[in-house]
């Protein structure tokens, strides 16, 4: 339905009005699509637009009624304050810390999750499905109740005030990523694996040479979501990074800009907008990769 009607194979229409009717239908359809996209996009963008415009407003103007969308007085003060590096708040250091903390562990985590997902999807072994359900069940326990025991555990390991509690667990593969990757891999034709086995490849080889390349869209998606989660995480760093300034993440730095003068809305919104930029670039890059993705026409191969 939505793959466009321009490449269907059909017999030529037998009169001109048929042709024109179809052309009009096509145009109306395109207009409808655009209208929906613009309307939907606008609704989704609205709060973000408010964030953006607020970041350029003077403090008093933020609370005016009716809402002012376009700042009467544009100001860059909020951004200046955001980037003014002091010994307490340094956005660049915060950004660097976040990247170091999130990227390697996410990459490793995505791969280990993919390996496990491959096993759950393609290899037969006793108890497979029950164990898989068990994994999903672990996602069900509300995380906050394990906050205290987890903290005590990391404390015993002397990992508090380091990045370790925020990096290491993720490297072992998360239930959510395993779940999603498994769903995808179940859709990969098993004939591919059969063929590889006939050629003498073991499971390890099949994983790296067949599954991973075919699952790239999913792996990149997992990486993106894993990165987003770690990047925007606020409670984890708040709990474990209470000491030195040099370890704090970007989100922590931004929230440090509040003080006794209350929540500085303009600065916080500026911070939120700036923080979105790296993730936006990541998304644009990832999207090209996985959406323009790979289709399964390689059955014969």
């Amino acid at each position: 339905m939505f793959k466009g009607t321009n490449n269907t194979l059909q017999a030529l229409p037998n009169n001109l009005s048929e042709q024109r009717k179809r052309k009009i239908k096509r145009i109306l359809y395109k207009i409808f699509l655009y209208a929906m996209l613009v309307l939907g996009g606008f609704i989704f963008l609205l709060p973000f637009l408010w964030m953006l415009s607020t970041s350029f407003k003077e403090y008093k103007e933020i609370f005016t009624v009716p809402i002012s969308w376009i700042p009467k007085t544009w100001t860059l003060k909020n951004y200046e304050e955001l980037f003014a590096a002091s010994e307490y708040v340094n956005l660049w250091i915060g950004f660097r810390n976040t990247i170091i903390m999130v990227v390697p562990s996410t990459i490793v985590g995505v791969l280990t999750a993919a390996l496990a997902a491959f096993s759950f999807a393609k290899i037969q072994f006793p108890g497979r499905d029950k164990i898989f359900f068990g994994f999903v069940a672990t996602m069900a326990i509300p995380g906050i109740i394990t906050m205290i025991p987890s903290y005590m555990l990391y404390n015993k390991l002397h990992w508090t005030n380091t990045w370790l509690p925020l990096m290491v667990p993720g490297m072992f593969g998360g239930a959510s990523a395993i779940f999603f990757t498994r769903q995808f891999m179940l859709g990969i034709p098993s004939s591919l694996e059969e063929a590889a086995k006939v050629d003498g490849m073991g499971w390890w080889g099949i994983f790296w040479k067949i599954e991973v390349p075919l699952s790239m869209p999913v792996l990149i998606t997992n990486f993106m979501f894993g990165f987003l989660g770690g990047y925007n995480d606020y409670t984890g760093p708040m709990l474990y990074l209470t000491g030195k300034m040099e370890l704090k993440t970007l989100q922590q730095m931004i929230s440090m800009l509040n003080d006794t003068a209350g929540t500085k809305w303009g600065v916080q919104m500026a911070g939120a907008c700036i923080a979105t930029l790296p993730t936006l670039f990541l998304y644009l890059f990832a999207q090209r990769y996985f959406v323009e993705g790979i289709s399964f026409s390689g059955v014969k191969e």
């Binding site: 205290i148 005590m152 000491g243």
Partner: peptide
């Protein structure tokens, strides 16, 4: 030695953990 804690739940966690 400064320890920055802005939320009481974090402080409470540390109290319970003895840290």
């Amino acid at each position: 030695e400064k320890v920055t804690i802005n939320d009481m739940d974090v402080l409470y966690t540390q109290l319970l953990s003895g840290t």
